[in-house]
Design a protein around this nucleic acid. Structure first.
Lengths: 139, 139
DNA sequence: GCGACATGTTTGAGTAAGCAAGCATATAGA
DNA sequence: TCTATATGCTTGCTTACTCAAACATGTCGC
């Protein structure tokens, strides 16, 4: 098909990303959130303080700053996250995980894990670990 | 971070897909096409007849049928592909790769390969092959 | 302490897609 | 042969983003 194995890998990653989007995104809709919103909750949950600057969040989940603004506003309205000011720097706006957000995340995490396992069903743990390490380096 | 390795893999795939989108998509813009358009050309190029039904194309590149319509129309206008009727069935509309489209693809393929290699720079061929096989199965 | 540049966020306008509905054609059953 | 249903594509409307510009605040050199 292609001269370089790397090109092939890229095409395959795109393809699997489509499936992730459809299957996992679909599964998460049961919790009233989309895949990108899940990633936000995931980041906040796994941050010691459970709060983060909008631009850092953008960086972490691969969104533009304006994308974060538009994503977070509705999440704030339904109470999953809250806005907080940084007393040291009035430019920044911290996003914090609310109790409700935490709960939704913990529930959604289970769904996410199930759907992920289903997707990678045919593989062994050690294959997946190797895979994961590889991806982490590229990221 | 997460209880299941599979969840971790999914998050990492999403993350690398962001990079693919940005780096490879950016690189392809030098040829006047985006990543999705590249995938269309790639499919057509690698099909024996170099023509394909719109719905099959949609399936192959993970787009909805309407997405294909909206993607192909401009490509047809600039002459990368052409529309062809199926004499056996007037419902279907075949997409064919034009000579110009073929040329653009062959040039873009080089860019795509370079960018892909750059992305996976730190890895060995055999790691990547294993990786690629794994992805192919999931796909 | 003030001007110039740097950083963080939001807003306005545009783009790429999805879903659901519509339209055209094909096929199968009575 | 007509009617019902299935299939393929496109269109209208909505959503999730992006980029560039605007705006607000912070910092540095003098």
């Amino acid at each position: 098909m292609s001269k370089y194995i790397e090109s092939e890998v890229v095409v395959n990653v795109i393809s699997i990303h489509n499936k992730i989007q459809k299957r996992i995104g679909g599964a998460l809709s049961a919790h009233g959130i989309g895949l990108t919103e899940y990633l936000v909750l995931n980041q906040l949950y796994n941050t010691p303080t459970q709060k983060m600057r909008r631009s850092d969040l953008a960086e972490r989940i691969g969104l533009s700053p304006s994308g974060v603004t538009r994503l977070i506003n509705p999440m704030e309205k339904i109470g999953l996250v809250a806005k907080e000011d940084n007393p040291r720097d009035a430019r920044v706006s911290l996003v914090t995980l609310s109790a409700a957000g935490k709960q939704v995340y913990e529930e959604a995490q289970v769904t996410f894990a199930y759907a992920s396992v289903a997707l990678f069903e045919p593989f062994e743990i050690n294959q997946l670990s190797a895979f994961s390490e590889l991806l982490k380096v590229v990221s």
